[in-house]
């Protein structure tokens, strides 16, 4: 019986913790007052200027704590609409091991499994079930995409230059957040790859010379 009480106690504590962490809701502002001040053009031009000069992109992303014995490191390469990534499992006590390498070229997927020395070839760009585990520096610009896919160089360029992106910027306002002044843009119908649904985003841009959002928040409609 004592054990049951303890379990019940921890169960209630756990539920309470989840209640306290419940997400904040989207605030309503005086849209009519701010609609006349939307500097959409400057935002769109700065994003296009940045991505217009980039035709290839490569990065590595580290997961877990690098001081751990085992952690993952992902190398991602992207050229126009073709992309390729390698997943490496790194063990600090031994040498780095390439767990698998995947490329998507000419509508064909190649997966190399070094463990059994096999190269798998398949027509089409197969969906990576675990792609959401590999965030990219481009994730900050996910608000630009609406096509239901992970943001790539190509679809960011296409979606920002599309008139529908301009229409989806609902309004802009100024907001003080932790002592800094931000321009906040509310953007509608942003497709979230992980949740597979359209969300409303608020992006916070601190430096007006940079199109890079310092913070973004996604709200369920």
């Amino acid at each position: 019986m004592k054990t049951l009480y303890i379990l019940l106690y921890f169960g209630v504590c756990s539920i309470n913790a989840q209640v306290n962490d419940s997400p904040e809701t989207l605030k309503e502002f005086n849209v009519q007052a701010s609609k006349n001040e939307i500097p959409k053009k400057a935002l769109i031009e700065s994003i296009l200027k940045m991505f217009g000069s980039i035709n290839a992109f490569e990065y590595s992303s580290e997961r877990n704590n690098p001081s751990d014995i085992v952690y993952e490191k992902v190398l991602w390469k992207e050229l126009a609409s073709d992309f390729y990534f390698e997943l490496l499992l790194i063990n600090r006590k031994e040498n780095s091991v390439i767990q698998r390498s995947v490329s998507f070229i000419d509508n064909q997927t190649c997966t190399l499994f070094p463990s059994n020395s096999e190269l798998h070839i398949q027509k089409g760009k197969t969906t990576l079930s675990s792609i959401e585990l590999f965030p990219s520096p481009l994730i900050a610009f996910s608000f630009t995409g609406v096509k239901g896919c992970f943001p790539t160089l190509n679809n960011i360029k296409k979606s920002v230059s599309n008139q529908t992106f301009n229409d989806r910027i609902f309004y802009q306002r100024e907001e003080l957040w932790e002592g800094k002044q931000y321009s906040v843009f509310r953007i509608l119908s942003v497709y979230d790859y992980e949740l597979r649904e359209e969300l409303t985003y608020e992006i916070f841009i601190h430096e007006k010379t940079s199109p890079y959002p310092s913070i973004w928040k996604a709200y369920d409609s």
Binding site: A56, E58, Y59, S60, L75, K77, L79, Y84, I105
Partner: peptide, 14 residues
Amino acid sequence: FSHVLINHLDETDL
């Protein structure tokens, strides 16, 4: 993110 590079790739890198 580390080792971020732009405009360094060509098709043979992929």
